[in-house]
Design a protein around this nucleic acid. Structure first.
Lengths: 224, 224
DNA sequence: TAAGATATGAAAGTAATACTATTATTTTTG
DNA sequence: CAAAAATAATAGTATTACTTTCATATCTTA
């Protein structure tokens, strides 16, 4: 399994980058340290200049990999969803019972992220935290419709569709499968955000996990 | 009722502004046109300079009302939630049956917004669209914990708590009332966003309303 | 191994942003 | 009508988000 994973490359829409960061050492350092810096400073205060200083490289060199920091965010978020989709498919693929499969899917999406040694330059735990705190910014823009047409959100959409199909598999008559699927994906991020910053607005925390909450929510919704 | 409403002022945390925009003509024009401009350009492209040009006033005059555009966003969003809270309390207050009350609450939160003539310089429909497309940006910042302490999100939090209490009223044993309440508030905005930009990820649209979806979600979740 | 191609770095420049400060002018009000 | 308050005009600063140009290092392949 380890060897299998080591040969895997997460495929990200190539419009997110000018030059594939996986293709060079500098590229990988850009990705590695952008995750550390965005996590540390927040996306808004993060700049290519600061990143260049940190990795001892020039601002203009970073621009040879990514057009701007928005595209870098699209790259990082797409990579994240691609990585999670892999876990998702891997974990659910062999399960034939639809309800069990759905249960597993909810689990994969909502459980806390742990480090994956397969991608040494990417810290998935910090990246997950970036997704929780910054993902919305990738689509809450005036360019969202164009960027959607260009396929920048494909992987995320595919995840929602996979989830939706699993719901429909368990309960074909449930009329809100797409909405419920998107609620689970988006809601998971939101509940983790609330745990961090508005604990009074969530039951999740030390005793209750997002997985328990969403498992309950989904199965109660679709059980007749 | 009209006269009653006309005398009402939505109370917004006074730290959001330097000088109360309700206290002068210029202040009201700033608010009025900031809503139009943020709706038109998106929050990211909106600047005080552009707003000044539009209302034939000077950039520096706008700074006498709001420290920066982030604070203006906090003002607008607080105003919106204050306004919605008013509708919420007004509509549910007289209902004694807890389930009916909860149903009404979900309705108020999730139904499409219509213009309210009581506040002539504020277009609630456009403001609602700003909330759908920009609200997350008001809290997805590195300053969120400080700003939370200073009370900038009080009204929103109060709305979630009101919702939570209504859920608990109907079903005291349901263990995820806070999470479900925050899911309804946040999820409503997200479903409307999906209708606009990612229709394949939602069932809401011409035939299904967010109200139907969330009513189903909430009552199925809390019914034993 | 030399020549050419490619990648990276250094430096400088530009337009816009997000303010701040100062001073002038207009408006309000007592 | 005078003083105070509000607003406007102008200019200035530091930072951002790039772009451009040119130099240098490194890699590659004939």
């Amino acid at each position: 399994m380890k060897h299998l994973l080591q040969t895997i490359k997460i495929e990200v829409n190539n419009k997110t980058y000018v030059k594939d960061p996986e293709s060079s050492d500098l590229g990988k350092r850009i990705v590695e340290h952008s995750i550390l810096m965005i996590h540390e400073l927040g996306f808004d205060s993060f700049t290519f200049k600061k990143l260049g200083d940190k990795i001892g490289s020039n601002e203009s060199s970073i621009y040879r990999y990514f057009e701007n920091k928005h595209k870098l965010l699209l790259y990082l978020t797409s990579w994240y969803w691609g990585w999670l989709e892999y876990q998702f498919v891997f974990a659910t693929n062999s399960i034939s019972n639809p309800a069990e499969k759905l249960q597993k899917a909810i689990e994969v999406i909502s459980k806390p992220v742990v480090l994956d040694a397969s991608f040494s330059h990417i810290n998935e735990v910090l990246l997950n935290d970036i997704i929780i705190n910054e993902y919305s910014k990738s689509y809450l823009t005036k360019e969202v419709d164009n960027e959607n047409k260009e396929g920048y959100f494909e992987i995320y959409k595919r995840m929602v569709m996979r989830m939706k199909e699993m719901i429909t598999e368990v309960s074909p008559e449930y009329p809100f499968a797409a909405s419920l699927a998107s609620t689970v994906l988006e809601g998971t991020l939101h509940q983790y955000f609330l745990v961090q910053h508005f604990p009074s607005l969530t039951d999740c925390g030390d005793e209750v996990t997002p997985t328990e909450y969403f498992t309950d929510l989904v199965f109660k919704s679709i059980d007749k």
